[in-house]
Design a protein around this nucleic acid. Structure first.
Lengths: 159, 159
DNA sequence: TAGAATAGTTAGGCCACCCTAACTTCGTCA
DNA sequence: TGACGAAGTTAGGGTGGCCTAACTATTCTA
């Protein structure tokens, strides 16, 4: 195997990939313990995931060593992170959601949305940013709109 | 049990609930076979899910009968459907995505986003709709913006 | 440098979900 | 009314993902 075609990773494995990507410092790679902590998972679960990622040619794993990503692992991870950041940014800077909620939602939605929609979302953020410079701030206008109409939302029960 | 507090349904069970909700006609309820077909799943899988929903007090299930939702099952299903529709509507009418892509993405994202964000998304759609009436059509403006900048997106590889 | 503390692995188990194959029940119609 | 086809269920199996407990390797420190 090696740089082989992507065969639809599970959300779970994408999470591991993302965690390694975020934790690995250039030289060292990520420590299993830190991955476990980052994902709130037992250390033994990380071992299993590392083996899976290794088999798919996405991570360089050998027992008791630090984990690094292969070239293609890095590519997949980077795409997940990219989705994450775009979503979070959209939630915060367009919808006006607080940081924690945005972070949490981005974590879950990043596995659900394809790059068609993510691409448009990015484009939309850029559009909103531009609108600001053009003296017609869409984000701000929406925030005022939302506040005005928020009473309705406040009545809703739901989770 | 019965009308007991919602204990975080799995995405899968939410899908079953949604399917039943969409299939059940007033008097009859939904047929197991149709649920299986709607979700692209074996009939035996539906049986299992019906038992699970029944245990949670969300569906009225008895062997060989049509399935209906309980009051609380209907409430949960309605919320899932609501999320679905808001997402789909956002993807289509704001982001300008085609129907199929929107439908598919809504199916996956509806389980990932809480009502805080869904609420704001709804609000945003309303804002965009209003903006249209006010002679400053945000959706249309974005679409032009996106088209102009689309070349960049087109170069991207990804899934 | 040995032993204690920490990190990592393995073994074994559990649960959610899905499947196929075989069986049961239901509904229909000759 | 009885037999046949369709619908539904049960049994049994597979996978993925998580856990704990017990073991092994590594690292740190006295």
């Amino acid at each position: 195997m090696g740089t082989v075609g992507r065969q639809k990773l599970s959300a779970s494995l994408e999470d591991y990939l993302e965690a390694i990507f975020n934790l690995a410092d250039e030289a060292e790679g990520a420590r299993s313990k830190d991955v476990a902590e980052a994902l709130g998972v037992a250390r033994s679960s990380v071992t299993g995931a590392m083996q899976a990622l290794s088999e798919k040619g996405l991570a360089n794993y050998r027992p008791y060593g630090c984990v690094t990503l292969t070239r293609s692992g890095r590519a997949v991870a980077a795409e997940v992170v990219r989705k994450h950041n775009i979503l979070k940014s959209f939630f915060i800077s367009v919808l006006g959601v607080d940081n924690d909620t945005a972070q949490q939602a981005a974590c879950r939605a990043e596995h659900a949305l394809g790059s068609e929609i993510i691409g448009r979302l990015l484009s939309f953020i850029e559009y909103v940013t531009e609108s600001n410079k053009n003296g017609h701030d869409v984000a701000d206008e929406f925030r005022r709109f939302h506040k005005k109409h928020a009473t309705r939302q406040a009545q809703m029960v739901t989770q």
